[in-house]
C-alpha cells in the first residue's frame, strides 16, 4: 500500500509541472526566440540585427568577456535591460515577458555558451 502511494506520488510529481504549464519554455527556446535576433544563433554577438546596432551586442561565447561578469549582473541585464548595468539601452528589459525562474535558467544557459564561470 505504501509502495503504491509512493509510486503514485512520484508519477504526480513528474506529471504535474507539465500539466500545470503546458507551454513552459526551456532556456534554449527562450534564447532562440528573444536573444538570437541581436546576439546571434551561436551567441557570438553577430545576430541579424547586429549591423544596425550603434553598440555591438555582447559576445556570449567569449569566456574572457563573460567571466568578468557576475551572475547577478547577467540577471539584472536581462531583467531590467542594458541601462540597469550601465550598458546600451538597446538591450531591452525582459522582466515583463520572462518569469524570474526563466531568467535564472537563461543565466545558466549563458554560462554554458561561454563555457566559463561567473566573476566573484
Amino acid at each position: 500500500m505504501y509502495r503504491f502511494a509512493a509510486v503514485l506520488g512520484a508519477v504526480i510529481a513528474v506529471a504535474m509541472p507539465s500539466l500545470y504549464d503546458a507551454h513552459a519554455a526551456t532556456a534554449q527556446e527562450n534564447y532562440r526566440l528573444y536573444c538570437t535576433q541581436c546576439h546571434g544563433i551561436t551567441g557570438n554577438g553577430h545576430g541579424i540585427n547586429a549591423d544596425g546596432l550603434a553598440v555591438s551586442a555582447r559576445d556570449h561565447s567569449s569566456a574572457i568577456e563573460m567571466s568578468k561578469l557576475t551572475d547577478e549582473e547577467l540577471r539584472l541585464a536581462i531583467t531590467k535591460g542594458g541601462e540597469a548595468v550601465t550598458k546600451s539601452e538597446l538591450m531591452p528589459p525582459w522582466a515583463q515577458v520572462l518569469r524570474a525562474n526563466e531568467i535564472d535558467e537563461l543565466v545558466v544557459h549563458l554560462r554554458k555558451l561561454c563555457k566559463c564561470v561567473a566573476a566573484k
Binding site: Q37, I48, N49, G52, A54, G81, E89, L90, M91, P92
Partner: peptide, 23 residues
Amino acid sequence: TKQYPCIGCHTVKVKENETGGIS
C-alpha cells in the same frame, strides 16, 4: 533610437535614410 531599443529590430526612415534592425 537611443532611450528605448525600438531601432534594434525595426527599420525606419530617418532624414531619407533607412536605418535599423530587421527582425
